[in-house]
Amino acid sequence: MTDTRSTRRLAITGVLTAILTAVACFGIFFVAPEDADQGIIQKIFYFHVSIALVGLVAFAVGAIYGIRYLRTRDAHLDDVSSIAIGIGLAFSVLVVITGSIWAKASWGTWWVWTDPRLVTFVIVLLLYAAYFVLRSSVEGELRLRYSAIYSIAAFASVPLSFYSVRVARSFVHPVVFTTGGANMSDAMLVWFLVSLAATVGVFLTILQLELIQRRADRAMRRVKMRLEAMA
């Protein structure tokens, strides 16, 4: 019953995400105005920033579900936490790659240590790659508990890393969102929001897919154990 419901939910999210992604790609490349300064390469902004924002949200989800796991010890919450962090990690890799491409086009070099956001994402990558090293090094219930504790500590490190890199380096990153509002035209903002929604959709789809897979995995292991006990 629950499996059918989750599968149906996954199908709906997947289809919606596919439609949103297609609309976003069309809008970004054919409708949104080209940036006067940067030209076509500015289009990478729609992907780069959306992935970065959703990646950070994924880490926040990981920490929140880590806290919830510590309070309830429900293994399902650990599943959500670890999958969200996995997706966040994959998104961080994409942020670094797209950022590097953008840096090459804008500043003529693949990597700049003076850009605090890009450097922060590399630190975040290292922080959360360690999460999976920890997970694979500890067994049983300890794995779930320690992963939850680390997910909280790592998430606390993210703003600290950003701030420390930012104060230590000059600020050269194009600042699109300021406290005074978004620093771009309305048409650009609309397509950015569509691409952000599509990225959220991708996150939710992968999350649900992985959750269903883990549940199936666990069910299969239970059946296997029962069969072994019978034999």
Partner: peptide, 20 residues
């Protein structure tokens, strides 16, 4: 403490958080 290869794990866990 109770992990496999803890001598390797600790620097991997600790150093990124120590960067700030």
């Amino acid at each position: 403490l109770f992990a496999r290869a803890r001598e390797l794990l600790l620097p991997v866990l600790f150093l990124p958080s120590l960067l700030p």
